[in-house]
Amino acid sequence: MRRLCLIVLIAGWTALQLPAQLRITGLDGLASKAKESVDITLDSSMLQMAGGFLAGNGKDKDQAKIKELLNGLKAITVKSFEFKETGQYRMEDLEPIRAQLRTPGWSRILNVQSKEEISEIYTRTEQGKVVGFAIIAAEPKELTVVAIEGTIDLKDLSKLGGLGVPAIPVPEQPKDTGKKGKQE
């Protein structure tokens, strides 16, 4: 009995030490207000399927890169909303996500804040490798939250052609500019 209690305690302690998978919550009501919204959740089995599909359809030159990126991933969640007008969401709506990103294991590598915009990038590293990645991008008429679980190379990700935005090279060391207010 004593041994069983010890095992349970160790298991519980270990579970507490492991950062749980990031859950994007609190944004469910925004889809109805949005002009356009994207809600994508892919778990490991879906990502495997996606990789298999992309392997057999090499039309797009980026698809090989995407397939490579998918190899190390365990889950992807993207929630993106584009609104007609400003004030459709509150910064407090992001608090449940931010609270998870404040837990041990996660670190903010980039934080750009202005009066109306916020861009935050968080990573979770294990043995020098990025194993979790999150972006919060809040603009007056747009809100995007991305959570990626698994091994991912941010340089490779940044090289990927976005949706019309040219890729910018990412420096070797991710930096937190450290200035609060305008740019942290």
């Binding site: 879906m46 980039l110 991008a137 976005g162 935005v165």
Partner: peptide
């Protein structure tokens, strides 16, 4: 299902790349 997952993965990674680059661009 695989086709849909593939399309969604492409969109998801493109959005992630776009937002990553936009944030980097703001810093630059």
């Amino acid at each position: 299902k695989a086709e849909r997952a593939g399309r969604e993965a492409v969109i998801a990674l493109r959005i992630a790349a776009e937002k990553l680059n936009q944030a980097r661009d703001k810093v630059v």
